[in-house]
């Protein structure tokens, strides 16, 4: 049984056109934010979604919770299809979101205490007198934080409040968008430990979105690599990091700084810039930067194939990993 299952999800945003496009529907252009996104998330599992800035990670996360509409594809949560606003409204409370900018995601004129009890009020759940203090204690904050305002918090404290607010309703799925962004390393560690600790205590599933590969590697069971709105590789974290199969994942993982200054992977350096969404390459999205590019890559879009059990790669030339798995 899967908790969240996504098939062929896509989002196209229409571009504003002039008079000609209003008269001629064929000349209308649209911007593809992401397309053909398919993956599953099991209960109690952590899936890390990595990719460069602008690859569509955050928009995808919002679409999964129905906060952004989609144009194609289906989302199943708890084995029910979620397509209409009412469907998504029915799953609020069992899903939660942690935002990249923790302070900005707290309503500025409400106290932390009011922000923590608001989800209970909205969902008509009873609120015990100690609830606020309990939630604050769960994330390691003293009870007097209940009277503070969001702008009085530090980044790490706001992040903890974000965790508490996400967990007030005992959700099953938490989507965390860059949970460590803007925090210094020691606080990053505290937040990640808090999240993993709460995951085992409350049996949560996480979808963690980040471009911080080291962090994702540390907390995820599986990772999904996104490039220009496409998932190019999904697989178990250890195997994917040890032997990435898609040329983009190979380069992304190789680009991670190594602690040893003598080790350099010049052969796997990634060249060029991520293409603009306005002139997305046809067929394979990575063709403009891929060293292995062949005519087929410019003509036939590759499908996400299961190369070896549990490992999916979107490349015409991906092969099963060679040699013994380290």
């Amino acid at each position: 049984m899967t908790l969240l299952s996504v098939q062929n999800l896509a989002l196209d945003l229409p571009l504003p056109g002039g008079l000609m496009s209003a008269l001629n529907p064929k000349s209308r252009r649209s911007l593809q934010i992401f397309a053909d996104v398919s993956f599953t998330l099991n209960p109690g599992e952590t899936l890390g979604l990595v990719g460069e800035s602008g690859s569509g990670k955050t928009t995808l996360a919002r679409a999964l919770l129905g906060l952004t509409p989609t144009t194609h594809g289906t989302i199943h949560f708890d084995d029910l299809q979620r397509s209409t606003p009412a469907d998504f409204a029915a799953m609020r409370g069992r899903t939660a979101m942690m935002f990249q900018d923790a302070i900005a995601s707290l309503s500025p004129r409400m106290t932390i205490g009011a922000l923590l009890t608001e989800p209970l009020t909205i969902h008509g759940q009873p609120r015990t007198p100690t609830k606020i203090a309990d939630m604050l204690a769960l994330v390691g904050l003293p009870p007097d934080f209940a009277n503070r305002y969001p702008h009085e918090l530090s980044g790490g404290q706001a992040r903890r409040v974000g965790v508490a607010r996400a967990l007030v309703l005992n959700p099953k799925l938490v989507i965390a968008d860059e949970p460590t962004a803007g925090l210094d390393v020691s606080v990053q560690g505290e937040i990640l430990n808090l999240m993993t600790d709460l995951k085992t205590r409350l049996n949560l599933s996480y979808l963690i979105i980040s471009h911080n590969l080291a962090m994702v590697r540390h907390v995820s069971d599986r990772i999904a690599v996104m490039y220009l709105g496409r998932l190019v590789e999904i697989g178990p974290t250890r195997q994917t990091f040890a032997q990435p199969l898609h040329p983009y994942s190979q380069r992304l993982i190789a680009s991670e700084p190594l602690p040893d200054p003598r080790k350099r992977r010049e052969d796997l350096a990634i060249k060029g810039e991520i293409p603009s969404l306005l002139n997305r390459p046809k067929a394979c999205v990575f063709q403009s930067r891929c060293p292995l590019v062949q005519p087929i890559c410019r003509n036939i879009p590759p499908e996400l194939r299961e190369i070896t059990p549990h490992r999916f790669v979107r490349c015409h030339f991906a092969e099963p990993p060679t040699g013994a798995f380290p």
Binding site: R92, M97, D101, E118
Partner: peptide, 26 residues
């Protein structure tokens, strides 16, 4: 489309609630 408004949508706040409790004071 500020983060705190999207956050309220994500926890299931109704439109009147978002308008009167979160947008109005700001």
């Amino acid at each position: 489309s500020a983060d705190f408004i999207v956050a309220e949508q994500a926890i299931g706040a109704s439109t009147p609630r978002i308008l009167l409790m979160h947008l109005l004071p700001n």
